[in-house]
Amino acid sequence: MTEHVVPDHFHSAEQAFESSKLGLWLFLVTEILLFGGLFVIYIIYRAMYPDMFHEASRHLNRTLGFINTLVLICSSFTMAMAVNKTQNDRSNRANQYLLLTLMFAATFMVIKYFEYTHKFHEGLLPGAHFSFAEITHPKADLFFSLYFMMTGLHGIHVLVGIGLILWVLVRSNRGDFGSRYSTPVELTGIYWHLVDLIWIYLFPLLYLIG
């Protein structure tokens, strides 16, 4: 077990933690606005081609999207529990919850993989690669450009999250965290909840309201 040392430029562990957390919140603000740009593109194209969005969104797999939403919500819960257990000095339980979170995250990516390969197979692709005969609207490729851009960017965030959780799990397993110091676990948790939060909007926008 390595004891965490508070850097010299902070008065206290409390201040160090609060500074880190403020930094993370600021980062999340930029994330919200990053996805905000995509939401604005979504609104503009949807206003231009409402019928096309209606038709194209029917070709997304609603069941898989639904399952993935449940999976991410569960992963958010297990993540919150992992943070809680870490603060209570119950590292073993925390590790179990972190492992569960990882498994949920991996499940999400596996389901996403099957969704993507199915789309590739059908020719439901962005831009000039679009080759799907059942949708006749000439601009249908726009919907799939947006679909892949939005879910792809979100998927990258999930992958980053998986990396972070793995890192936190390794350190937690080493005994780095406890009630005295749990900053990485908490911040990874907050980031992970944001990934969930973004999906909460992506799911209805792309899969449900056609």
Binding site: S76, F77, M79, A80, G189, I190, H193, L194, D196, L197, I200, Y201, F203, P204, L205, L208, I209
Partner: peptide, 19 residues
């Protein structure tokens, strides 16, 4: 309804999961 429900869910995640 879809956006309303999403916003309620997002608020719950923010307030409680994200503390």
């Amino acid at each position: 309804v879809a956006m309303g429900v999403a916003t309620v869910k997002a608020t719950l995640v923010c307030l409680f999961f994200m503390h």
